[in-house]
Design a protein around this nucleic acid. Structure first.
Lengths: 146, 146
DNA sequence: TATTGTTATACTCTATAACTATA
DNA sequence: TATAGTTATAGAGTATAACAATA
């Protein structure tokens, strides 16, 4: 098992800087589509055609389940999502409406669209970045499971 | 000028996933030190020995200047920072107290410390990640200037 | 006049605790 | 009894608008 090297520590700090930038992009996008950050995050967390229990949304948002009620109320009021009943009749699952799916895709496209600086990298540099990040995310997912 | 390739787009999406992870780490840390997210972000934005105007803090926090008043009030009440007057007597600058500096360093160390998954990468992989991110951050900073 | 920071107000996010309806 | 979601409440974050002090 390799230790974290000087490169590993430097990479962590650089990641932090890139993430600050991404945060700004999210903040700007959310304002433009007229949602609050939590409403937007909820929309983005929903898979089309799959009902997501309120408790799962609370975990994703890192907040108490009681808050999800109000957030979801507003999404329903705007016609972006609807509550549906599950087998266990205590749980209420949230699904995107057609309008909600469209908004989600629109946000996703813009959020995941490459920042302006990406085109300053050569093809080879973009490939190297992709490969390194892919490897990092892979081990991160593995670590999360254990 | 190279275009954004498939690798560039994939890298952007992966960056998004790492961001989610980092967000969780920040959230956990903030709770542990007993600050709110905005209070913690403010502390982290202050340079030791340098007075930072309220307006600069507002820009960093991406919120209206009127909100900074209350956030700073609480930091002062906890003895982590103090308001000092600047040459232009309209502006009030915020500086860290000794206690505030200590807390900032403690948070910074933990936030920038490599996540657990980093040690799953080999030395070579860590070096590749570092180099790719270094290049990305360099062009990002350049793009930010223009 | 213009700008910095503050105050006032209203809405959103947040955690805690008490409640309901299911299980 | 335990769990999923809701309601009630209080503290914190947010934008807008109006204000004081200074430029």
């Amino acid at each position: 098992m390799p230790k974290v090297t000087k490169d590993g520590r430097a990479a962590t700090t650089l990641l932090f800087e890139l993430l600050q930038e991404h945060k700004r992009a999210f903040h700007t996008l959310v304002k433009e589509v007229g949602l609050t950050p939590q409403q937007a995050a909820t929309i983005l967390s929903l898979e089309p055609g799959v009902g997501t229990p309120m408790s799962v949304i609370a975990e994703f948002l890192m907040c108490d389940a009681s808050n999800v009620t109000g957030i979801v109320d507003k999404l329903e009021a705007r016609g972006l999502a609807t509550r549906v009943s599950a087998e266990d009749r205590r749980v209420k699952a949230l699904t995107l409406t057609t309008e909600g799916e469209a908004l989600k895709e629109s946000m996703r496209t813009r959020l995941h669209s490459p920042p302006a600086w990406m085109e300053e990298l050569t093809r080879d540099e973009q490939r190297a970045l992709h490969e390194s990040l892919q490897r990092a995310v892979t081990v991160m997912r593995e670590a999360g499971k254990s």
